[in-house]
Design a protein around this nucleic acid. Structure first.
Lengths: 171, 171
DNA sequence: TCCCTTTAGCTAGATTCTCTAGCTACCTGA
DNA sequence: TCAGGTAGCTAGAGAATCTAGCTAAAGGGA
């Protein structure tokens, strides 16, 4: 709607770009909420659901500490987190083949099934939206999403490890 | 990579659709992590950051209870959440004009500034990716994102209110 | 080989956040 | 006017994370 008729800007061919930005930001904001929604459907708290999410989507197995790093929690918290997941039957601890200090965390089959089942309504809708794209649109969308994903990955990676006590000297 | 050569399916013109789905899911997963990253940059816990996120992006002012609903927490927790945000100088409570039971939560200017500052590296990258799209691609991406957003909104809205005690009768 | 540093994972106790239960004040419809 | 429902708050209990510190194993250099 509100095409800002940018003067002579370096956006020579993107009148609805602010709309796209807005649509993307809305999508990303809601995406944050879907994790909590997934957690509620699984009967888990947000961290536990995020942990399983990371474990099932990681190309290589993670240990408790690395999982904790990705979740932004301490190693001690990661240990008790894994304890909870193991006790609930969602995860199993197996020794690392080459490093006897390490563990590999395996998501159990039943947990994978539950996650897929809980996610299904969303995946169905997403696939339906994808199916409506022409091949050219799909290709462009894929490239665009990968670019955005890379931006977010960088954003997450450069966030401080600890709550950054940002200007607590307020008043 | 793994194009599933679907037999005679209703996907007549979308060979890279699984790639797009995958790219989208990766983006959504990372998007969930960006909220935690934003929280760390702001020196807040995840809920508090999500709360400010909701407040700044809501078209109309919210009260503690409605905010809690959107965050998936109880009204009592929302009260203490708002207490924290007020004490930190991020939010102000103002009375609702027509309903004396209610409050309107206002994000302070300084908090808005801090959020924008903390988000900037991501917004810059996002805008850069958007600017690379042709007008046709931008339009298609916008429609696609809105569709996906609607799917997620529905997914969030239909999640159970409480941890769904899903099959706790495991073994 | 031996020593020293670093890393993975764990335990114990303190802290923080959310929850349940229940309350008051206010709005709304009969 | 009065009953039912809603917004917001308080108090105390429970759950999750944190800090601090430990052991065992890997890795590097003398």
């Amino acid at each position: 709607m509100e095409e800002v008729p940018s003067s002579g800007e370096p956006t020579p061919a993107a009148p609805p770009s602010s709309e796209t930005s807005r649509a993307l930001r809305d999508a990303l904001r809601i995406a944050g909420d879907t994790r909590a929604a997934l957690a509620r459907r699984l009967g888990l708290n947000a961290t536990d659901a995020a942990a399983i999410d990371h474990l099932v989507s990681s190309p290589e197995p993670l240990g408790p500490v690395e999982l904790g790093n990705r979740l932004g929690i301490r190693s001690a918290s990661a240990t008790t987190l894994v304890d909870r997941l193991v006790q609930a039957g969602h995860v199993a601890r197996t020794p690392h083949p080459h490093d006897r200090r390490r563990l590999s965390l395996q998501v159990t089959e039943s947990a994978v099934g539950e996650v897929l089942e809980a996610l299904r309504p969303m995946l169905v809708g997403v696939d339906r939206a994808v199916a409506r794209l022409t091949p050219e649109q799909a290709e462009a969308a894929t490239a665009f999403l990968r670019e955005v994903t890379e931006v977010m990955r960088e954003y997450v990676a450069t966030a401080p490890d600890e709550p950054s006590r940002a200007r607590a000297d307020r008043d």
